[in-house]
Measured scan of single mutants.
Amino acid sequence: LVRYRTISKIPQITLNFVDLKGDPFLASPTSDREIIAPKIKERTHNVTEKVTQVLSLGADVLPEYKLQAPRIHRWTILHYSPFKAVWDWLILLLVIYTAVFTPYSAAFLLKETEEGPPATECGYACQPLAVVDLIVDIMFIVDILINFRTTYVNANEEVVSHPGRIAVHYFKGWFLIDMVAAIPFDLLIFGSGSEELIGLLKTARLLRLVRVARKLDRYSEYGAAVLFLLMCTFALIAHWLACIWYAIGNMEQPHMDSRIGWLHNLGDQIGKPYNSSGLGGPSIKDKYVTALYFTFSSLTSVGFGNVSPNTNSEKIFSICVMLIGSLMYASIFGNVSAIIQRLYSGTARYHTQMLRVREFIRFHQIPNPLRQRLEEYFQHAWSYTNGIDMNAVLKGFPECLQADICLHLNRSLLQHCKPFRGATKGCLRALAMKFKTTHAPPGDTLVHAGDLLTALYFISRGSIEILRGDVVVAILGKNDIFGEPLNLYARPGKSNGDVRALTYCDLHKIHR
């Protein structure tokens, strides 16, 4: 019993810090008490220290592992850092350059016999395009090294910054494609005289377009951006097909006994025919423009016929181009109408809503002055909100995010209106959640004399007048207030005048 009563005193000691020596009952000389009392004092002292730490809000209350900052290894790049964003855009520009100039170089340097010394005699450094290609190869190699040090988000939505895990993730992902696209074939085969082989191998750079397509997928929600990307894709495919079309004609031209190829026909049409040795002929500019003209006309199913396939190889390629053109029509131009419709969806919704308003007016036989006010209010409210119901949009977000959005939407009023000066951010967040926005066209009466005042109004834009009878008592403008002081009276009061809008007004109100 003594032991039980001794232990039962522990909660009292913990909360009230009572010393055991003052209790005459606990001072009985028993061996059990002498053993338990020192333990009680020690526990009391420890609990006292913990309570003191909690009340003082000291940093040592938290466990040590929670006080440590997340460790980022040296030379690790955050995937959302500004440097990584700028670097990704730079790589994107280099990939676009590669997609345009690599097929052009591979096709127009394929057994090209233009006048001038061969590239091997001039030297590697004197070729501007080769120098640019070398810079692109170096940048792609540097990009691989950067990807080995860039964080990523795993399946659990955690940012991984450990170098080993980053390397394994990159090896399992895009490393092989990036490595093949970054191989400097110019340096590996330079001086061997195989410019045709170098041009063909350099087309491996186009593998990076797969990554670019995935990154550009984030802009699919913007109709104008999608339309622009589709047109660029169409032009890029036409450019690639033009390079292939020229390569076919250029390879067949020296081996044909009869002059029936499209390059021969082009030379005869523009007065620059090929001679018996295969030299001469149109310039590279004429060849490229004509090839691009043929691919565009074939892809769009126009086909004027002034550039036509004559050999079997050219006919087979033309059939493939027609098939590609039909697929592009289905996948690209078939979506253009939907994209344009999405661009004008706001206008369509406006006309639909206006039609419903006019049908309501016609069905209920609203008189002319009231009908005009109804239409003007709808037009003004639509121009202010673009038909978007803010309350319906915010309803799907958590309250903390709703408060931040409301604070942002009402920031101008909260910053410049005098009653809100000096208020804490928590108070402003709470008030912003209570605001209701209303609009009024010129001549609209917001409050009639004798109406119950259940709200306090803040003028965000425009001006109003307060009338008693036919006498203008006051004219209020931006950041002015009218209405009933909230919670100042037990019952809502009545208006002693009319409140009429002089201009288009936007008002925020808080109800009782």
Rank of each mutant, 00 (worst) to 15 (best):
I198C: 10
A449E: 10
L355P: 01
I248K: 01
T311C: 01
L216R: 04
V168H: 11
R356Y: 15
T437N: 04
Y329K: 13
L401W: 01
L201K: 01
L323P: 02
W174N: 04
R205H: 06
K285H: 04
L188T: 04
I339F: 03
G303I: 01
L201A: 05
H169E: 08
G325S: 01
P441V: 11
W240G: 01
R211N: 08
G223K: 04
P282H: 05
E115R: 15
Y293V: 01
I361L: 09
L230S: 05
T347S: 10
S331T: 11
N391Q: 14
I237P: 01
K425R: 09
Y274D: 03
L374N: 01
N306S: 01
H380Y: 15
A348T: 10
T385A: 05
I388D: 13
G173E: 01
L414V: 07
Y80V: 09
V307L: 01
K395C: 08
C400P: 09
F397T: 07
I405S: 02
A403Y: 01
V393S: 03
F140C: 01
M251G: 01
I324Q: 01
L209D: 01
A130S: 03
P254R: 14
W245P: 01
L187D: 12
S331Y: 09
I144Q: 01
P398T: 03
A381W: 14
M328A: 04
L292H: 01
L446S: 01
W382A: 04
T352P: 03
L374R: 01
T76P: 01
L292R: 01
Y124R: 03
A224H: 05
F175A: 06
G199Y: 03
M322D: 01
L370R: 01
M231V: 05
G164H: 12
F360H: 01
A182P: 01
V142Q: 03
A330H: 15
N312W: 01
F333T: 03
K202S: 03
R429T: 03
Y97I: 01
M433T: 09
R362S: 03
G267F: 04
G116A: 13
V131N: 01
F101P: 01
L206K: 01
E114W: 01
G199R: 15
L370P: 03
S383A: 11
D444K: 03
